[in-house]
């Protein structure tokens, strides 16, 4: 019962997400929310390595793009069956992620951030310049929708919505089990102090690498889903700005919290899409918001809510203890 109560909010959330397409005929709304789901999966990756493990990886959009381009190229150019291509896209992203991680993680803090920023830029430049493979600035068009699984087809907006929702829910469950376990505690210990983590017997390099690789896997997953959902990809999806967008979703929702990515991403994506004029100029508001958040409210929405609940629970407990003693005194 206790566990169910704790999960009440997320379950309501899930219910709303499941019913949402039934209450709107507007394909555009469904499209926007689906896109937000895809980004949220990528943000979960960033959140794991940045929010939990404390390593700010700024190559995230690069891995998102690798996933997307791998799927696009395999299906369009190489005619590989969709789900096999999907699987291979994940493998490719993860392998590249592992190689990058092995080298990048030898650097620390600022160096790591700069290093990954540059890796992201290299990925962008390669996609942009390697015309023969990637189509360069023209991008890749005509990527196919996900192939049918048995009787279930994914050629409509709604079916894609549910498919991607399933992936998002799986991602959240994965993250929940991971971060709430002793394995996840290891990551938090590294974020808190790498020095201390090492002296309590944690192989920090290995653990950082694992969390980095998972993060690139999630970025690749989101990228592959993006490619077949939007069906057109260009070099822009690998650009630094995309990484910064992901970062912003994570910070607003709550860096290092379980539900921060989904809350932050949905909120900002829906907000910017519904206020059309904000599309290009959203950073006028979100740039300063990012600054204000890290100064005054670094936990974001979800983190702030958790903190408030925790303090309240503690005060309640204190109060009942205090009351207990007054009653004793009264007797």
């Amino acid at each position: 019962m206790q566990g169910l109560k704790k999960m009440r909010m997320p379950l309501i959330f899930l219910l709303v997400a499941l019913l949402f397409p039934l209450f709107t005929d507007n394909q555009y709304y469904i499209y926007v929310v689906t896109l937000a789901f895809i980004y949220a999966i990528a943000v979960y990756g960033m959140n794991l390595v940045g929010g939990y493990t404390g390593q700010l990886s700024l190559a995230h959009a690069g891995f998102f793009a690798i996933g997307a381009y791998a799927l696009g190229l395999l299906t369009v150019d190489a005619n590989v069956p969709y789900w096999l291509a999907f699987f291979l896209a994940l493998v490719i992203t993860t392998v590249i992620g592992t190689l990058v991680g092995l080298i990048a993680l030898r650097t620390k803090e600022h160096f790591f951030a700069i290093y990954t920023l540059c890796v992201g830029y290299i990925i962008y430049l390669i996609i942009y310049e390697w015309d023969a493979l990637t189509g360069g600035v023209r991008g890749l068009i005509g990527i196919e929708s996900p192939a049918a699984i048995g009787p279930i087809t994914f050629d409509t907006g709604i079916s894609n919505y549910y498919l991607i929702l399933v992936f998002l829910v799986l991602t959240v469950i994965f993250m929940k089990f991971l971060t709430e376990s002793i394995v996840g505690r290891t990551y938090v210990a590294i974020r808190n102090s790498e020095e201390l983590a090492q002296t309590i017997g944690i192989n920090t390099m290995k653990q950082k690498l694992i969390s980095f690789v998972i993060s690139t896997f999630l970025a690749g997953l989101a990228g592959a889903l993006y490619a077949s959902f939007v069906r057109f990809i260009g070099p822009d999806i690998s650009y630094t700005m995309m990484t910064f967008d992901f970062l912003m979703y994570a910070i607003v929702g709550g860096f290092g919290t379980l539900f921060g990515p989904v809350v932050g991403t949905l909120l900002i994506v829906i907000l910017t899409q519904s206020l059309q004029f904000m599309e290009d100029f959203r950073m006028i508001i979100f740039g300063p918001l990012l600054v204000l958040l890290v100064i005054f409210y670094p936990r974001g929405i979800v983190g702030g809510y958790q903190m408030w609940k925790m303090k309240r629970a503690y005060k309640k407990k204190q109060r009942s203890v205090d009351q207990g003693s007054t009653y004793e005194g009264g007797d």
């Binding site: 940045g50 404390g54 700010l56 803090e109 600022h110 951030a113 910064f244 970062l247 912003m248 910070i251 290009d280 100029f281 959203r282 950073m283 006028i284 979100f286 740039g287 300063p288 918001l289 990012l290 600054v291 890290v294 100064i295 670094p298």
Partner: peptide, 29 residues
């Protein structure tokens, strides 16, 4: 920005700097 953040975890400086960058660029645009 940076002065209020001088005791914050190092990751915060970087995020704040990114926030400023995004703001200035969009403002100019």
């Amino acid at each position: 920005v940076f002065n209020p953040l001088r005791h914050a975890p190092p990751i915060h400086d970087k995020i704040a700097a990114i926030g400023i960058l995004l703001f200035l660029e969009t403002l100019v645009q």
